[in-house]
Design a protein around this nucleic acid. Structure first.
Lengths: 324, 324
DNA sequence: TTGAAAGCGCTAACAT
DNA sequence: ATGTTAGCGCTTTCAA
């Protein structure tokens, strides 16, 4: 059984497909009787208007793309969740691509989205070394989330102002008497990696702490990296506190800390990044730098749906230190 | 700047659009020289073939739909993550709709997917009372996940065989000396709600336990419901153990248990449903009924990509009791 | 009040 | 080896 089209309905009723078209869009230029009859028949036959044909005619496709490293990390999951919900409200369809922070996959995803003429794309840009060019997105409006991709920062972006929270975290640890505070974060390939590390160093200086290079661990922003580095830090035995600068890194490091400190008697102060719900449930609660996910998501959809061409090109939301 | 099409390229080069078409599909029926020239120009201009036009011509759209209650619960998130990754491999696009277990939203999502001619849809059917008809999906191939929707069980389905694990859980608790075991699960509107409750009662009978009605709490499969019912059970003070029969319910109940038992000195044995990574990190680990997510996701994509019309209509994967 | 034609981007099937 | 035509589903424009 093939697709039900206005033509097939027209044939079925022995009339012109134009009359069917008009009837289905409630045009007053068609007899009420015929109109009702046509609409009834269309419903019976299970007619659905082809979005494809509409796009071909020039109508803007109601599709927005979302590119994330993954969707298991609760921050990304919540963001995707909120975006999906809001898209539902605006009767937009959400196409999700997971890049795993890989530039090649990222580009492929963008190509696919271009093929279906997606109008807007929200993406967390993958880390790219300086010799890699900026991602090509044709005429799609792309909105960068959390990080800034490439050197071209001409795309609208939704960023997190986490400098103050990170500094506050270092100062808090220092006040608790910690002198050896380790930092695990993304490397300089990421705009967010640079700024967060800087905030950490800044905080340490304000606290009058000398941080040796060995206490500063940077790398790709992955769970595995966070876990491995945290293990290394704990095994080295010098640090008494760990501060994280990345969502995935935080979870990875936390898993290592839990394992290691359960096994031995040692304890380590831990401040994570992002605030998955279970952080409140572990031990007496994990302190962390909280990022306002829902606000970010709302902002993203707002940017997308606002047809405003010359809209604000950058939005910024403050992170907040939560001590538990 | 408008879209680059084969026609615009053809104009640019002063040739027929057919030659361009052939060149871009590497047809041997065009001079190597012209072919190379055309391909070069197309790249320069940033040409991308319109998937929309291809679908209009009759090509099957490379789009699969995924309908989930939400994407924050780690089970759904992992499933979506795995599906997205696998779709990437098959160069399919994944459109995600969140139903929040609402039948109306579910139907709307299906309509949208039909509009874009999605070929296949994987969905966790929302709970529907008997007076609601089955969801309408036109000619899309739909695969039901975890639950069976409507009374029409003629759709292919991917299910979890959790009866044995649930019975084992009850027996385990009984062996530990628990006599008052509470159960929180989905109500009878859900196929999974029915079977899980049955397994629980079955296990209780095997263990020789008398379970009063007050210890059996069913309702919509949400976080809020699990949390509220768990609170009620704990406050009532009779139960010494709680067993959950649902992903969301489990997280909700767990949150209540943690809060309540942290406040007072009481302890309650808890066995959850599903195995989000953090279950291993809470206290000394949360016991749970583990569902093989990745296998489910692989199975789903396999079902989708296999063009096999008369393929196996039902797949089933075993849940496993994990004691921590 | 209804119908016919044209065009959106693309390719199979015919020309040339 | 290259060009022309037609048609996928739909609506806008023009004709009856």
């Amino acid at each position: 059984m093939s697709r039900v089209t206005i033509k097939s309905i027209a044939n079925d009723l022995g009339i012109s497909h134009m009359t069917v078209s008009r009837a289905l869009s409630n045009s007053p230029k068609v007899q009420k009787e015929t109109r009702d009859a046509i609409q009834k028949r269309a419903r019976e036959l299970g007619y659905v208007k082809s979005a494809v044909a509409m796009v071909m005619r020039g109508e803007a496709p109601r599709i927005v793309g979302l590119l994330l490293p993954n969707i298991v990390n609760e921050f990304y999951a919540r963001f995707a969740n909120d975006m999906a919900t809001t898209c539902e409200l605006h009767s937009q369809q959400l196409i999700i691509h997971l890049t795993n922070d890989d530039v090649a996959i990222e580009q492929q995803a963008l190509d696919r989205l271009q093929e279906v003429q997606a109008t807007s794309v929200v993406m967390v840009p993958a880390p790219r070394s300086s010799d890699q060019g900026a991602p090509i997105a044709g005429s799609m409006r792309i909105i960068e989330l959390i990080r800034q991709g490439g050197d071209t920062d001409k795309n609208p972006a939704i960023l997190v102002e986490d400098g103050p929270a990170i500094r506050a975290a270092v100062l808090h640890l220092a006040q608790e008497g910690h002198k050896d505070i380790a930092y695990i974060g993304a490397n300089r390939e990421l705009s967010s990696g640079r700024t967060r590390l800087e905030a950490f160093l800044d905080g340490a200086k304000q606290a009058g702490l000398e941080i040796p290079q060995s206490m500063i661990q940077t790398g790709p922003p992955s769970f595995a990296m966070g876990r491995a580095r945290a293990k290394g830090i704990i095994d080295a035995g010098q640090a008494t506190a760990i501060l994280c600068g990345g969502f995935e890194i935080s979870n990875g490091a936390l898993s290592a800390v839990i394992e290691k400190t359960t096994a031995s008697e040692r304890t380590i102060s831990f401040i994570g990044y992002g605030d998955p719900s279970f952080y409140a449930w572990i031990d007496s609660g994990v302190s962390t730098i909280q990022v306002p996910v829902t606000e970010l998501a709302h902002c993203a959809v707002e940017m997308i749906t606002s047809s405003d061409q010359q809209q604000s090109r950058r939005a910024s939301f403050s992170a907040r230190l939560v001590i538990r």
